[in-house]
């Protein structure tokens, strides 16, 4: 049996909120296309109307879920902004500078260590947050402004423009987010998807690769470190996701790894 160390990166609440928003966001994009792309609406107005109604229902979920998360964990909100609005380090700038070359040549270009949230993540997630907020505001205006709370035509035109504009922004950043987060890009494969759609834990090796500064701090601190025992034959399977630790930290929790 081998011991493998993991770091608990995301709480259950974070994962539930992210998962719900992710599904809602994808559905909003699909249903929104039925208004955005005329041939889709023209081909089946009934389906387009159904999509429009689901767009509104799911839109409410999309808006309410972050609020639910914020109410459930005010400290988490504070930590979130603390992570994202921190001062940029030289490594952060280096990361952004190398990002495109790295994406095109990951075998040759090596990225600098990063804190808990990479600079690229901060930029991309920031765009998603801004885009999401703008979509929510303009979407609510388009909805309520054409039903129970009529808005002037000029305001509706501006809101429609913003809704379309930030839809484009969201498409770019959501697709890129899925490409990296789901591990479609091979260097990101091996567990990143589980961070949000699994147990929220990242293996030591993966953490050191993606967020070097943060991983070392966490491993030294030991508070969020989980040690799992796995069969030796499974070590290779986990090789890209985990490493064998030396002696686990005394504060680390010991868990039995799932035999999947």
């Amino acid at each position: 049996m081998a011991k493998v160390r993991f770091i608990q990166r995301h709480s259950l609440l974070t994962r539930i909120v992210h998962c719900t928003i992710a599904v809602a966001c994808v559905w909003l994009m699909i249903s929104g296309l039925f208004v955005f792309i005329p041939p889709l609406a023209a081909a089946s107005p009934d389906l387009a109307r159904f999509m429009k109604i689901t767009h509104r229902i799911v839109g409410v979920i999309f808006i309410c879920m972050p609020i639910f998360g914020a109410v459930g964990s005010p400290g988490g909100v504070k930590a979130f902004f603390g992570k994202y609005l921190r001062k940029w380090t030289p490594e952060d700038f280096e990361f952004l500078k190398k990002f495109v070359p790295y994406m095109l040549s990951p075998k040759k270009v090596h990225m600098p260590d990063q804190d808990e949230v990479k600079s690229g993540q901060r930029f991309a997630d920031g765009m998603l947050v801004i885009g999401g907020v703008m979509m929510a505001i303009s979407g609510m205006a388009l909805w309520l402004g054409t039903t129970v709370c009529p808005l002037p035509a000029g305001v509706l035109t501006v809101m429609r423009f913003l809704h379309d504009l930030f839809f484009l922004v969201m498409v770019v950043f959501v697709v890129a987010h899925i490409f990296l987060g789901a591990g479609i890009f091979q260097p990101y494969r091996g567990g990143t998807v589980k961070l949000m759609f699994g147990n929220g834990q990242v293996s030591e090796a993966n953490a050191l690769y993606h967020w070097g500064f943060w991983a070392r701090e966490e491993l030294e601190d030991g508070k969020n470190v989980v040690v799992k025992t796995v069969p030796d034959e499974d070590r290779k399977r986990i090789s890209s996701k985990a490493s064998l630790g030396t002696e686990p930290d005394a504060t680390a929790k010991l868990e039995e790894a799932p035999q999947d």
């Binding site: 990951p106 890129a176 890009f185 091979q186 030591e204 050191l208 890209s240 030396t246």
Partner: peptide, 27 residues
């Protein structure tokens, strides 16, 4: 976007990295 990400995907195929661990005692 699809073309760009497709290219990145192809460039990433076969990528391997050394498995690392951290010795927090000796840093």
């Amino acid at each position: 976007l699809a073309a760009g990400l497709g290219l990145c995907f192809l460039r990433g195929v076969g990528y391997k990295r050394d498995e690392l661990r951290y010795d927090e005692v000796n840093h």
